[in-house]
Simulated scan of single mutants.
Amino acid sequence: MWVDHYLPHWTTPDRSAARYENTPEGLRLRIEADQPDWREEDAPLRVSNLQTGTFSGARGSTRGTHRHREDGLTVRTPTPTRLLWAPTAGRVDITVSATRDAGCMVAAWLVGTEHESAEHAGEICLFEIDAGSIGTTTRARCGLKAHGDPRLVTDMAEVEVPLDASQPHTWTAVWGDGETTIGCEGVTVRRLQQAPDYPLFLMLDLFEIGRPGGSYPKTATFHHLRGWADRGPSR
């Protein structure tokens, strides 16, 4: 159900490959000292990611999942269309321990596959948690990003949750019928009157943003994940 590369079509396999391990506590994503930047143009930026499918156009084209920037992303490694889990509506619960490693961020997103249309590009951001935002309470970003979908309006907000996010805790997204709800530990933190209505891939991410430093590996652990697909080309 998982592809262990971060948006592999926009870069090369040695740069997109995730570093990770299975542990008794769950799946641990790692950033390691010898890990290359995702793309040379984006340096310094290193990432380990798992995602539930792939899609791209031909080499040199601009077609592909998650055209999250408009500054020259072109396909370098064509990838097949793989809809391993791509619901158009549903629910996902993710239990995670975020990293406290300086310069790092842990995130979970549902992103439009774009295999049917380049306008199917919206994103549900369950959470983006910077290491520096974790304490006895934690600040996180969540909401919707329109990207290339003209029917959506970007609506992101920072929320504060009353927990230390480096300890196991659960985020939930429920979406469909024009509404998206995001919660943390059973408490709703965002309710938005819009939702993507096309296939979405799930992405789990650990980023190191900025110049490398400190001790390695830098890690975040995903303890448990469960998803329900109300409809769509998922299996």
Rank of each mutant, 00 (worst) to 15 (best):
M1E: 15
V3D: 13
H5R: 10
P8I: 01
T11E: 01
T11Y: 09
S16M: 03
S16T: 05
Y20C: 02
Y20S: 07
N22C: 10
R30D: 11
R30C: 12
R30M: 12
E32N: 03
E32P: 02
D34N: 07
D34K: 02
Q35S: 08
R39C: 08
R39T: 13
R39W: 04
E40C: 03
E40M: 11
E41I: 14
P44V: 10
L45Y: 15
R46M: 15
L50E: 09
T54A: 05
T54E: 13
S56H: 11
S56T: 13
G57A: 09
R59H: 15
T62M: 12
G64K: 03
G64N: 01
T65P: 10
R69K: 03
R69G: 05
R69H: 04
D71I: 09
L73T: 02
T74W: 02
V75Y: 05
P78G: 00
P78H: 02
T79R: 14
P80K: 00
L83E: 14
P87E: 00
T88G: 10
G90M: 03
V92H: 10
A98K: 00
T99R: 07
D101G: 03
G103C: 07
M105K: 14
V106S: 15
A107M: 10
L110P: 05
V111K: 06
T113W: 11
E114C: 02
E116P: 01
S117W: 00
A121K: 04
E123R: 06
I124N: 02
L126S: 01
E128Y: 11
D130L: 14
D130I: 08
A131H: 01
G132R: 15
I134A: 03
C142K: 03
C142D: 04
G143W: 10
L144I: 15
P150E: 07
P150L: 09
L152P: 05
T154I: 11
D155L: 08
E158Q: 14
E158H: 12
E160W: 12
P162A: 04
D164R: 07
H169C: 14
H169F: 10
H169Q: 09
W171M: 06
T172I: 11
W175A: 08
W175S: 12
W175M: 12
G176H: 09
G183H: 05
E185I: 11
E185N: 15
G186L: 04
V187F: 01
V189H: 07
V189Q: 06
Q193R: 13
A195Y: 08
A195K: 02
P199A: 00
P199D: 02
R211H: 09
R211F: 03
G214T: 04
H223N: 09
H224E: 08
H224L: 06
H224Q: 14
G227L: 13
W228R: 12
W228F: 13
D230R: 15
